[in-house]
Design a protein around this nucleic acid. Structure first.
Lengths: 220, 220
DNA sequence: ACCTGAACACCGTTCAAGT
DNA sequence: ACCTGAACACCGTTCAAGT
């Protein structure tokens, strides 16, 4: 363990350190938790385990998280933030509209598959209602236009209604329906009911096509 | 504890007893497990707890189930059996066809809401793959036409394709899509993201309508 | 055949104590 | 300010022993 030159810190710019032992333990704990869940499942996550693997006492975690639940809530919160960002990027990169909407759908399922540990914690019912509410509030407060991932979906629908390519039903209800479809596909995918990536891509493609037909403005 | 007249048992007709202590402990354990999950969630299920509540030692369970996992697998298995039966009844009672299909969709979500503890165990990722496979095999073996709930759905689709009211896509893929929709709605409903029963009924109604439009045979 | 009680190796969490 | 070690009240599971 040689001693390394430490970068000067200006007040308030607290940059992340790569070393956890004396560095950014909260971030390291979060990363290790995600890694463990990804490898062995949520049930296998153990505070003693993450402590050991980080070379730290099994109670060190309590300096940064109030409980195991709080650690899981942080995983979920990080997941929602990443999901929103990836949906946003997909929507914008595809030039919004119908193409952007399809890109969002694909991005959603891809996120669930690639970050299945985050996704499981986000929607697996491991969080109690109060924590879930806290995360949702936090999410809206920290996004520039005060909307979370679901809010983004609603906005995308409204925009397409104005373009005359989506039927003029209640946007909230439409959003719930669409979320049901992609969430269902995502669950099928990450539960390994679907084997290959190709199989998943095929189903999401099919689902988005049928979904689009179902919500399209009927030709007058 | 007075002594009660016990009904005579003919061989092979082993009828369920209301008393667990000397009666049908496996069934009592299963019932108590479901009840506990329904009230406090899967994480709160504890072998010691069910033992206590049944007035039985905490290791008595091991005479009838190999492990806690096996107990959960039994809950799931019972759930799949009930689901298949309720879908079957809905489909038949509504006279099959398009009406029967809609009835199946509603029955599916209603099952998830009413038996949310079963549903959570069935699809919450609490079972490991080997047990899940065993349940699926058992399910097909014990149904008269060798099809589980998913198989029923496929059959219903094929029948509607023959009637010319559903587009001639691959029935398996169509079934996966439809399952995604109802599963997504069910998850939204039981996670209390939807408050009132009316709200749930409205969403499932809307979802089935949009889904039907999406999979209908296009007018030539 | 069915159930018990003690024992074992694990948990999350608290708290006084160390630096 | 941050971390540790012992302690506490819980787990699932095993196994010899009871009836």
């Amino acid at each position: 363990m040689g001693c390394m030159a430490r970068p000067v810190r200006r007040s308030g710019t607290r940059q992340p350190s790569k070393r956890y032992h004396h560095g950014d333990l909260p971030r390291a704990l979060l990363h290790e938790a995600v890694h463990t869940i990804q490898r062995d499942g949520v049930e296998a996550l153990t505070l003693r385990g993450v402590g050991d693997r980080l070379g730290v006492s099994r109670t060190a975690l309590y300096r940064h998280f109030t409980s195991k639940q709080a650690l899981l809530a942080s995983v979920a919160s990080e997941g929602f933030r990443m999901l929103r960002q990836e949906l946003d990027e997909a929507w914008t990169a595809a030039g919004r509209g119908a193409a952007g909407f399809e890109a969002m759908g694909r991005a959603y399922v891809r996120f669930a598959v690639r970050h299945s540990s985050h996704y499981r914690v986000m929607f697996g019912g491991h969080l109690d209602p109060s924590q879930r509410q806290a995360i949702a509030d936090d999410q809206r407060a920290n996004s520039r236009d005060e909307s979370d991932a679901f809010g983004m979906l609603v906005q995308a629908i409204v925009e397409q209604q104005q373009q005359g390519i989506v039927r003029p039903d209640d946007p909230q209800t439409l959003a719930l329906y669409i979320w049901s479809v992609v969430h269902g596909v995502a669950m099928l995918a990450i539960d390994r009911l679907l084997e290959s990536p190709r199989e998943i891509e095929e189903l999401i493609g099919f689902a988005l096509e049928r979904m689009r037909t179902g919500i399209a403005l009927p030709k007058s």
